[in-house]
Design a protein around this nucleic acid. Structure first.
Length: 675
DNA sequence: TAACAGCTAAACACGT
DNA sequence: AACGTGTTTAGCTGTT
């Protein structure tokens, strides 16, 4: 007896839409977890490596800057009056190309796209965003510096022109300038690489014609025409003097920068083939060398003069020094052990990823061979790289599904496995936004997703990919007594999801609507008023999807569930970073894992329940619903076949300790920067 | 194409 | 009267 069975007024029992429609989530746990496990570590490594490079570039820039300063001093000493920096003459002003200097941070549109796709986990997105921000910071500093230097240079060139100064000095200054450009070129190359790495991981979809991505900044107006003109004057007037290779390369670089306006000028440094992909041919040495392995002393942790210990990348001149470094820096200690464990997890996840991807590939190939003529072969779930398709889908999705929050994406997590019609690898990651909410019946359980992405949902205004019904149910099930007042449900929404801290009128109305509409929500009069409970039987009665009866799908489903278990271990690994012992189990009292584990069982159970409705599946884990759950009133008699209690009720014991009923965010829009 | 699921909006009733 | 709660209907989009 949980509460006094009050006068629940479920008068909508006659609702035509019947409450059998619960929520749904779509995520196959395999695809999500794998996507995240796949991308996380390499992305982090790449980011760290690039940061190192950025720092190196900065140092080089510092040196170059000093040279330039010396040059300026010489000029000043030689009698040139030092002009005020603010005396910029508009006609000769050399604005720094925004296109070039714009940090290649993920634009809001791209971010939205990413969030909508949710190919990777929110945590991974955060990590990558942090890397992006770090890079952005670096480049912004360089940008400032570059601006200053360019202004100075411009002024000096101006003066020299007017004063008829020696071209040699001028040329030297220009060389310095070009040195900066080269540095910045490399900087941008790094950014490009970072971006491409994101692309490879499916985080970004570079769409043709997408202006937000400065993929061709160097080819477009990097140096204004004024400067080009200046250069022409300088170089043509003194072409006889400077025919050295360095100057040539400098000039080449310059013309490269203006190649958009004068493509037929001098030879391009940019690789034409690469430039079509937005990738420059200017490689940093490190990247270049990554592809070959011809070191005489082959060691998995040593390559190309760099220690490959995760997170190290120390430069070692030769193999001996590497061994020295290995023994000194990576000796057997706690840190190394921890890193080793992490690596183990990484490998494990990658292996899982590989296995799953192999299976997926097999399924795809089978599918394409068997029923390639099926009209639904290229249906809605995927939006190929074509921006037309994507934008169309997006425009369809946003206004209807989110009229109240145009800035926040609908975030249905669309598993790659949903659409087997994926052909290209890029399109694997460009599954566009879909309006639907996803059933939590056969895919990732809502409790699992929320538990794992809790922080993300709390901070990012991303709509959870679950139906209101599912969310309400989750809120109620998370409560200690499996019952909540309406206001407590509201609070749960605002507490758990940043998305629901806006437009309260809309979603609260929807919550009330769902509570009233769905039979699975039972109103119970309580001492302190009315509370809402979940009728699990009704909830599980949701319309079975077409998956039922298809043995192969059932098998796949079970497989996907099976993948959840080791991935659960991966989650534990990540928690080990926070002093949570590795390989803890859900029974050890961690609420998140407890919920996760139980949710997995729940989903598996629920799925089996529907797919094997005829079988007398008497798995020991099941328990009659009434034994655990406070359902007080049924308008319909319990179907004994359906009365198998879902194991989700097990989560009771693992209720999150930090569940705070009193904290409510109310309706006021929450600050955006809840980072 | 129709049925269904889900979302949003809105009207309305009722109680405080 | 204002507000919160609850019910119901309608219209729309997307899926099956």
């Amino acid at each position: 007896m949980m509460q006094e069975s009050g006068t629940e007024t479920k008068s909508n029992g006659s609702a035509i839409q019947n409450g059998s429609s619960g929520g749904n989530h779509l995520l196959q746990c395999g695809s999500l977890r794998e996507g995240r496990s796949n991308g996380e570590t390499p992305a982090a490594d790449a980011g760290a490596a690039e940061l190192v490079h950025v720092q190196q570039q900065q140092q080089a820039l510092q040196v170059a800057r000093q040279l330039l300063l010396q040059q300026q001093q010489q000029q000043q000493v030689s009698g040139l009056k030092s002009p005020k920096r603010n005396d910029k003459q508009p006609a000769l002003q050399v604005p720094v190309s925004v296109a070039m200097m714009t940090p290649q941070v993920i634009t809001p549109q791209q971010m939205q796209q990413i969030l909508q796709q949710q190919v990777l986990s929110p945590q991974q997105l955060q990590v990558l965003l942090q890397q992006q921000q770090a890079l952005m910071l670096q480049q912004q500093q360089l940008q400032e510096f570059y601006k200053k230097q360019q202004e100075q240079l411009q002024l000096q060139l101006l003066q020299q022109q007017h004063a008829g100064k020696q071209p040699k000095e001028q040329q030297q200054v220009a060389t310095q300038q070009l040195a900066f450009q080269q540095q910045l070129l490399q900087m941008q190359q790094l950014q490009q690489q970072h971006l491409l790495s994101l692309q490879r991981q499916g985080l970004l979809t570079i769409q043709p014609g997408q202006p937000a991505l400065p993929l061709q900044p160097l080819a477009q107006g990097m140096i204004p025409t004024e400067l080009q003109q200046l250069w022409k004057e300088v170089t043509s007037a003194h072409s006889a003097e400077e025919t050295t290779g360095s100057n040539h390369s400098s000039l080449d670089l310059t013309t490269t920068c203006v190649s958009s306006s004068a493509p037929s000028k001098t030879s391009l440094i940019m690789n034409p083939h690469a430039s079509t992909n937005g990738q420059l041919s200017v490689h940093t040495p490190k990247r270049e060398s990554l592809s070959h392995e011809e070191h005489p002393h082959s060691h998995p942790l040593y390559g190309h003069g760099v220690c490959k210990w995760p997170g190290c990348e120390a430069v070692c001149e030769d193999f001996q020094s590497f061994l020295k470094h290995l023994n000194s820096e990576h000796a057997l200690d706690d840190r190394s052990t921890a890193q080793c464990r992490v690596q183990m997890q990484v490998v494990q996840q990658l292996e899982l990823q590989l296995a799953k991807d192999k299976e997926r590939l097999q399924a795809m190939m089978t599918h394409l061979h068997v029923k390639s003529t099926e009209p639904k072969a290229a249906p809605q779930p995927l939006n190929l790289v074509s921006s037309v398709t994507l934008s169309k889908s997006a425009s369809e999705a946003s206004p209807q599904s989110l009229p109240h929050t145009p800035t926040t994406p609908t975030a249905p997590i669309t598993p790659v496995t949903q659409g087997p019609s994926v052909i290209t690898t890029t399109s694997m990651h460009t599954v566009g936004p879909i309006r639907r909410r996803y059933s939590d019946k056969y895919n990732v359980p809502i409790s699992s997703d929320i538990a794992q992405n809790q922080e993300f949902y709390k901070n990012a205004e991303v709509r959870p990919p679950f139906t209101y019904a599912s969310l309400i149910r989750q809120a109620i099930l998370e409560s200690p007594e499996k019952q909540l007042t309406l206001n407590e449900i509201y609070n749960w929404f605002t507490r758990m999801f940043a998305y629901f801290r806006r437009n309260a009128a809309t979603w609260k109305n929807a919550v009330r609507h769902n509570l009233s509409l769905h039979k699975c929500f039972v109103r119970v009069e309580n001492v302190k008023g009315a509370v809402w409970t979940v009728d699990e039987v009704e909830f599980q009665k949701r319309r079975p999807q077409k998956i039922s009866g298809n043995p192969s799908l059932i098998k796949n489903m079970q497989t996907s569930h099976a993948y959840c278990t080791p991935l659960n271990a991966a989650l534990q690994a990540s928690m080990a970073e926070n002093s949570i012992p590795l390989y803890t189990t859900a029974s050890m009292g961690n609420p998140t894992l407890g919920n996760l584990a139980s949710a997995i069982r729940e989903e598996l159970n629920g799925a089996m329940e529907h797919t094997n409705s005829n079988e007398s599946d008497s798995s020991p884990g099941r328990s009659p619903l009434q034994a655990v759950h406070p359902v007080h009133v049924k308008e319909e008699p319990l179907d004994p076949e359906e009365a198998e209690g879902p194991l989700s009720l097990v989560t009771t014991a693992n209720h999150s300790p930090d569940f705070d009923h009193d904290r409510d965010y109310e309706d006021e829009p929450v600050n955006e920067d809840m980072e």
